[in-house]
Every structure is written in C-alpha cells, then in structure tokens.
Design a protein around this nucleic acid. Structure first.
Length: 292
DNA sequence: GACACGTGGAT
DNA sequence: TATCCAAGTGT
C-alpha cells in the first residue's frame, strides 16, 4: 500500500486555507485557544471569536487573572460553554505549574483541564513543531476511506493514533504537514457528506473508491433532538446570564416563561454543579473569582 | 464504551 | 421541516 504522505504534502501546499493559526509565529497560546474553540465548533464560526479572545487575553496569565465568568461571557454563542471554563482552568494551571508558558510535552499538555488526545498533540505539533500523530474526526474519516475502504470511521479508538503514525514521514517538518493535510483534506474534500472525490489527491490509491464506494454499516447513534432538550434549556439559562453579566439576575427572572419549570430548575442546578453558574442569595450569576 | 454536552448552517 | 454535521473531552 503506497503511503498517503507525498500526495497529501503536494496537495496541501496549494489547497490549504489561509487560517489565522497557520500564520507564521502565531504562538502556542493562540494555538491552544484555537484548538479549544475548534472542539466541535466549525472553523468559520471560530475565527472572529478567536481574534477577539486573543486581543483581550494575549497570554495565559492574562486570562488566569480574570474571573472565570468573564471567559464564559467572552465565549458568547460558540457552544459547549464548559470549554470556556476549562480553558480558564487550563490558563490557571499553566500560570501555576508552567510559569505561564504553554507546555510542549504531550503528557504535560494532557494533564491540563480540557485537553485530551487530540488537543495535546495538536499543540505539540502545530505550535512547537514536534513529531506526533494528530488525529481528529477529519483524519479518522480520511484514514477510514483511503486506507480501510470504509465510508465512515468506527468509534474513536487509541489505534487511530497508530494508524496515523504509520502514515507519517520520518522528517519532523513533513510529518507536521501530513497531519495538517489529512485534517484539511477531510474538512474540504473528503467530507462526511458529498465528498469531492474528483478533486481528491488520494483518489488513485483510495481503498473506498477502489471498492466502489460501499455504504457504511450505519451503526452511528442518532444525535439527540435539541428542541425541548436539557441542553437547550441550559443554553437558554446561560444566555440570560451572559447578557446580564457581570450583574446577577434574580432567580425568578431566569427564563420565566419556559414551558417546563421543573426542567428549567434542573438545568439551573446542573449548571451550578458544573461551576458555570453561581447562586448568591436569591440571584444567579456567572462565576467570579473563588473566595480565597 | 456510551453518553452528555450548545449552537447554527447546510441539505 | 427534520436531520445531519462540526479540529473532542470528561465522566
């Protein structure tokens, strides 16, 4: 089986999008913030928020010095607001454990709040130029198709890292490009729906294409309905508090017209349990500095 | 390993 | 309109 590296590198040189975190000297903190924002949120929605974030908090210490609620407010409507809280915690950890410098070591990165297998290696590779396999959902789909001949990848697995490692050149700089190129291909060519196979640099060697594009076995779980969900309820509560911040809001004024009052109250309790909301007297607000 | 966790654009 | 999908992580 011929490797994917050479055609990916050649394709990426011409096809890569011009994205902020690919600019020369973007910095490890910028890379880290971008990766947090990109966890399950599309690129086009991230870009403007990323620039505003880095203008307000140019270093981890700057963010760590602000109350966590400010991070939740600045996060705005990017979704999964716990990521804002985790990013704030990671900034505190970086300040306290790493002298304010984003660590380079993968294990040190993995020890930070909100950083898992993907983000840790993305920072080590894209910010610091080290050699590791970086595997996101795009890469998993590219490998599933080009190498395994399947329409969709199976569930995430630690073997994914080994599968990508097998495609990386020994050269450190080239390995980084192959990581980025596999993600980019999955994002703009080898897409989940309507892949552009006629424009794919791997078409000649794609196992899925060679097998006649067999359909996936479709064991994927359907995404839960959002309308009427607890997630929607939490989102509505938090939106109210973001828009009022930094002021606290009387508890009775939190989405008072919500159809299911019990669901609303459960959402508030779960947000408090998650540390996204604080209760003070009969008011709610986004979290301030912890009492010392 | 399954599940919870936001939000908005595309089909 | 309903469903799918998006640079994942923690429990």
């Amino acid at each position: 089986m011929p490797g994917l590296a050479a055609p990916l590198i050649a394709w990426y040189r011409d096809a890569a999008r011009d994205l902020p975190w690919r600019r020369e000297g973007f910095g490890a903190w910028g890379t880290l913030v971008s990766e947090f924002m990109l966890q399950q949120t599309p690129v086009n929605r991230v870009v403007p928020h990323l620039e505003a974030w880095l203008t307000r908090w140019p270093t981890p210490a700057d963010l760590a010095a602000s109350p966590p609620g400010d991070a939740v407010t600045q996060w705005a409507n990017l979704g999964y607001p716990r990521r804002a809280l985790w990013l704030h915690r990671a900034a505190v950890e970086i300040r306290d454990r790493h002298d304010g410098v984003v660590p380079r070591d993968v294990d040190a990165l993995l020890a930070l709040t909100g950083i898992g297998d993907y983000t840790a290696r993305a920072v080590a590779v894209f910010a610091y130029g080290d050699r590791h396999p970086v595997v996101d959902t795009n890469t998993r789909r590219v490998l599933a198709r080009a190498v395994e001949g399947r329409a969709q990848p199976g569930p995430p697995n630690r073997r994914d890292l080994e599968a990508m490692e097998a495609e990386l050149p020994a050269d450190i700089a080239e390995a980084a490009i192959v990581n980025a190129a596999a993600m980019e291909l999955g994002a703009i060519v080898c897409t989940a729906r309507a892949p552009k196979c006629e424009a794919c640099p791997l078409a000649a060697q794609c196992a899925w294409r060679a097998a006649g594009y067999p359909a996936s076995e479709d064991r994927r779980r359907k995404q839960a309905t959002y309308e009427g969900s607890d997630r929607q309820t939490r989102g509505a509560v938090l939106k109210t508090l973001r828009e009022a911040a930094p002021a606290a809001v009387p508890a009775f004024a939190i989405i008072p017209e919500w159809p299911d009052a019990a669901q609303r109250d459960r959402a508030i309790d779960s947000l408090i349990a998650d540390g996204l909301v604080e209760a003070v007297d009969d008011h709610l607000r986004l979290p301030g500095h912890p009492a010392s």
